[in-house]
Simulated scan of single mutants.
Amino acid sequence: MTIRQTIQKKLKAYEVNAIQTLKENNSSLYSIEYKLDLSFFKFQNNKINHLLYWDKDELVGYAAMSNFDPEALEVTLIVRPDQKILNEMNKTIRTFSQQEKINKILLITDRKDTFFRSYMEGVNQYKYVFSEYSMILVINQFEPKSTNVSLEPAKKEEAGMIASLEENQLANETMPLDPEDLEKTLVLRKNEQVIASIRVENEGNSSGLYGFVVRSEFRNQGIGRKVISQTIQELLEKQAKNIYLEVESTNETALHLYRSIGFKEQTLFDYYIYEITD
Rank of each mutant, 00 (worst) to 15 (best):
S206R: 10
K47H: 06
N251D: 11
N168C: 07
D82W: 00
K91G: 03
Q141D: 11
N242G: 00
L137T: 01
S66F: 02
K35N: 14
S249A: 06
K35A: 14
K264F: 04
G160D: 06
Q99Y: 04
D181Q: 15
N26F: 02
I85L: 11
I261S: 02
K91I: 05
G222D: 15
L245E: 04
T92M: 11
R94F: 01
K12N: 08
N148A: 03
N46K: 13
E100T: 12
A159T: 02
F130D: 06
V60Q: 02
F142P: 00
Y271L: 14
T277C: 08
T253Y: 03
D82K: 03
D178M: 12
F68G: 06
N205H: 11
F130I: 05
S206T: 06
D37A: 14
I223S: 04
D57S: 08
N205Q: 12
S27C: 11
S164Y: 02
S150Q: 12
E158D: 11
R117G: 00
V200E: 15
E74T: 08
Y271C: 14
N140Q: 13
N172S: 14
T109V: 14
K264H: 05
Y244P: 02
L182D: 03
K264A: 12
L151R: 00
E100V: 03
F269C: 13
A72N: 10
I108Y: 03
Y14A: 07
L186P: 01
K91N: 11
T253F: 10
N49S: 11
E180K: 14
Y126T: 02
A254Q: 09
S206Y: 00
A196W: 00
L257E: 08
K155L: 15
S207L: 14
D55A: 07
E152M: 14
A72Q: 14
G222V: 07
S97Q: 05
S131Y: 06
E201T: 07
S97G: 06
W54Y: 15
F212V: 15
D55G: 01
S66W: 06
Y30C: 09
A254L: 13
E167N: 08
D69L: 08
K47Q: 12
I139H: 02
T250Q: 14
Q20E: 15
V60L: 10
A171W: 05
A13P: 01
E201I: 12
T2I: 07
P153E: 07
S249M: 08
